[in-house]
C-alpha cells in the first residue's frame, strides 16, 4: 500500500505515541499531539495504538493512492474528500489505486491523523517512529513531509486488519457503516481544560490564581508543537525565587518572567526553569492539541486523584473500543 503526497499542507509529520526512553538525554517525547485521534485512527483499522500515523496541521493538503490502500482518519483539522465526495472519519476506508484525496478545512480544530493498514513504514529511531524536527531524526528522514514523498504501509498487518480489508476491497471507494466516534469519549465542552495545581502554584498571588481559574486565555499566534503562548491576565508572584531547572512534560503550564503563560506540548524540552502554575489533565491534552491561535479557553481545577481516575477510565474506554472492533470480525 502506497500513497504519494501531492500537497503537504502547513506541517505534516509521521508520529506515533512518542519516544519516552531518552528523556534523560533531553530527547523530547514528540509523538502525536492529539493521541486520542491518532489512536482512534489506528484502532478502526485493527492496528496497534503505537503504529505510525501521519499528522496533518490544518487542511490544504492532498495525496494520491499509488496502490489500493486501506486507511482511516480522525481529528478535527480537516475533512477528506475524494471525487468531490466527503469521506467519513473514524472508520476504515478502502481507497482504490489512482484516487486523489484532498483535505479540506474543518474549522473545529487543527490536527488530523491518517493511519494505514499496519501503520506507515518508516524506520524506528531510539524506539519510536515519531519525527523530532528540532534534532532532525525520526519519521521520514527527520523532517516534515513534502510534495513528492511516497509512504508505504507496513507489509505485516493483523488478522483483524486483513479481515477489514477483505470486507471492503473492490473496484470503488468503500467504507464501513460503523465508526468509533471520539465524540462519545470527549467532553461536550471542549474549551474548558481541566488542570491540576502544579508544585509552584502557591508562588503566585491570590489574584493570579483567581484569574487563572476564572478568566479566558487566548491561544497566541506564536504556538506550535513545542508549546502554546497563552494570552490573558498576567500572573504575578508572591514568591520571587529562582526555580532550578527540573523536568517538565507535555501539559505543563509555565509562567515566564513577564507573567505570561506557556503550555508545553509534544515537542517541548525535557527540562525547564520557569515556575509552573498547573499541569493539564492527560485526558484533556487531546483537546489542547486541537486548539488554534485565537481560540479562547478556560481552566478548571481538579485534584490529582480525580485526574488519575479520569485517565484510567479513559484507558478502559479505549480498550473497549478495540474489543468492539475485534468482535465485529471474529
Amino acid at each position: 500500500m502506497q500513497i504519494r503526497l501531492i500537497k503537504p499542507g502547513l506541517l505534516t509529520t509521521i508520529q506515533d505515541m512518542g519516544r519516552r526512553m531518552y528523556l534523560s538525554q533531553a530527547v523530547s517525547v514528540s509523538g502525536a499531539m492529539d493521541t486520542l485521534s491518532a489512536r482512534i485512527a489506528n484502532k478502526v483499522l485493527g492496528n496497534n495504538n503505537n503504529d505510525a500515523v501521519i499528522e496533518f496541521t490544518y487542511a490544504d493538503a492532498e495525496f494520491k493512492a499509488d496502490m489500493d490502500v486501506l486507511i482511516a482518519y480522525a481529528g478535527d483539522g480537516a475533512t477528506l474528500i475524494a471525487a468531490s465526495q466527503k469521506i467519513p472519519a473514524e472508520r476504515p476506508l478502502f481507497i482504490p489505486k489512482g484516487t486523489t484525496v484532498k483535505l479540506i478545512n474543518r474549522s473545529l480544530g487543527c490536527r488530523t491523523y491518517l493511519s494505514v493498514a499496519g501503520g506507515w513504514d518508516v524506520p524506528e529511531v531510539l524506539g519510536s517512529k515519531s519525527t523530532f524536527i528540532t534534532a532532525g531524526f525520526g519519521g521520514l528522514a527527520g523532517r516534515a513531509l513534502k510534495a513528492g514523498d511516497t509512504l508505504n504501509g507496513a507489509e505485516q498487518v493483523s488478522t483483524i486488519t486483513q479481515k477489514i480489508l477483505d470486507s471492503l476491497k473492490g473496484d470503488g471507494l468503500s467504507y464501513t457503516n460503523w465508526s468509533l466516534p471520539s465524540q462519545l469519549i470527549l467532553p461536550a465542552d471542549r474549551k474548558t481544560i481541566r488542570v491540576i495545581p502544579a508544585h509552584e502554584f502557591n508562588w503566585f498571588d491570590s489574584q493570579a490564581i483567581l484569574d487563572f481559574l476564572s478568566t479566558a486565555y487566548i491561544i497566541g499566534s506564536n504556538s506550535n508543537r513545542m508549546g502554546y503562548h497563552l494570552e490573558g491576565a498576567v500572573l504575578n508572584r508572591v514568591k520571587k525565587d529562582e526555580l532550578l531547572s527540573t523536568a517538565v512534560t507535555p501539559g505543563t503550564i509555565q509562567v515566564t518572567g513577564n507573567g505570561g503563560m506557556i503550555l508545553l506540548m509534544a515537542d517541548c524540552q525535557t527540562t525547564g526553569g520557569y515556575p509552573r502554575m498547573a499541569q493539564v489533565a492527560l485526558v484533556d491534552l487531546p483537546l489542547c492539541a486541537q486548539l488554534k491561535p485565537g481560540d479562547a479557553i478556560y481552566f478548571k481545577e481538579i485534584g490529582p486523584r480525580e485526574a488519575e481516575m479520569l485517565y484510567l477510565e479513559r484507558e478502559l474506554q479505549l480498550q473497549r473500543l478495540t474489543t468492539a472492533v475485534n468482535s465485529k470480525f471474529l
Binding site: A198, H199, A247, T249, Q279, L282, E308, Y311
Partner: peptide, 12 residues
C-alpha cells in the same frame, strides 16, 4: 516527592 502528572512524580 511531588506530583508532576498522572504519569510522573518528582523527588526534590
Amino acid at each position: 516527592i511531588y506530583y508532576l502528572s498522572e504519569e510522573a512524580v518528582t523527588i526534590e
